[in-house]
Design a protein around this nucleic acid. Structure first.
Lengths: 172, 172
DNA sequence: TGGAAAACATACTTGTTGGTATGTACAATA
DNA sequence: TATTGTACATACCAACAAGTATGTTTTCCA
């Protein structure tokens, strides 16, 4: 990301931008804190918390990633994951912010799975923390695969694999 | 990556480097073609092809990632995945090279799974192409999670989730 | 052994880019 | 209404890093 591009795209001037943000990193922090956080909460936490059948919601989301997110996931990947992969090793401010957000996300998936478990829909012996961590990792992996291959087909195949896994958790 | 760092680390001079490579990208291509490719082949393709119980090999590799790869996977992530994530959207030369290598890798996992399937160790109805794609994606996702969290613990949890999945494929 | 080509060194150039210095319009407020 | 702080705008700077121009050494043959 170039600040000159941000300036050009927003119609702001550099003076205006630097009046509100001390430096480039601070702008990025604000994007995480104010934009990405809200997107994750609206797209995942709220639906998962509100729905009586959260496993179905998770499966639906995974099965419709390309539709639900912009059509750019295949070409550009997940913006949050891109930011995390690029900035986490370079800047602790980004890393901690994104890590907290990932933990919040993971926690909501864990809670959703536990509710599914209590409803008797998935096996009682499953470790929902472990599964939530794995599912989130697998999702980002699927998007990464699609991005590297620049292929919607690969996203579909990979997502289908993840959905198969989630279905396999159900009570037999 | 800065070329000045490469120059400093290798003891080469810039003149020497640019005598052998026309530009920075060409150096990166050579790293993929001559270094990373060999590493993947030695670390994955050959062991999988040579072993009579390839599923056990896959599970072992996933369970011992931090030991088998350098200790830097948690801090820095997987070099190949880092390169792919960063360069695939920017340069088609990197993207195609890395995609071909991923396909080779995925293919070897698929073949390993098919052998396991023919031996009757995993269920006959499984789509080994789908599973291989998913497993590779999940692996890169696990490493990414560990990198973002800067946590070996997260790598262990996530890898354990992936191993549970692989175990679940076995014949009942 | 002489000459040509490969294999380097060194110093320089140049575009990019984050950041700054300085000036101005405007709004609030005492 | 004078003043003060906020919200901008413009022009510029400095550093970094890829790439180049040019010169020198070494190697390989005929």
């Amino acid at each position: 990301m170039r600040l000159d591009d941000v300036v050009a795209a927003t119609g702001l001037t550099k003076g205006a931008l630097y009046h509100h943000f001390p430096n480039k990193h601070a702008l990025g922090y604000a994007v995480v804190d104010e934009i990405i956080r809200d997107i994750i909460r609206q797209a995942w936490l709220e639906p998962l918390a509100a729905n009586a059948n959260p496993l179905a919601v998770i499966i639906y989301f995974i099965g419709h990633m390309e539709t639900l997110m912009g059509g750019d996931i295949v070409t550009l990947g997940c913006p949050m994951n891109n930011l995390a992969q690029e900035m986490s090793p370079l800047d602790e401010g980004f890393r901690t912010r994104l890590d907290q957000l990932y933990q919040e996300w993971r926690g909501s998936i864990q809670t959703a799975l536990e509710r599914t478990q209590q409803a008797g829909d998935i096996r009682a012996d499953l470790d929902c923390n472990k599964i939530a961590t794995f599912v989130l990792a697998a999702m980002s992996g699927c998007v990464g695969v699609a991005k590297n291959a620049q292929s919607s087909e690969q996203l579909r195949i990979c997502s289908a694999g993840l959905i198969d896994y989630l279905e396999s958790l159900r009570q037999t």
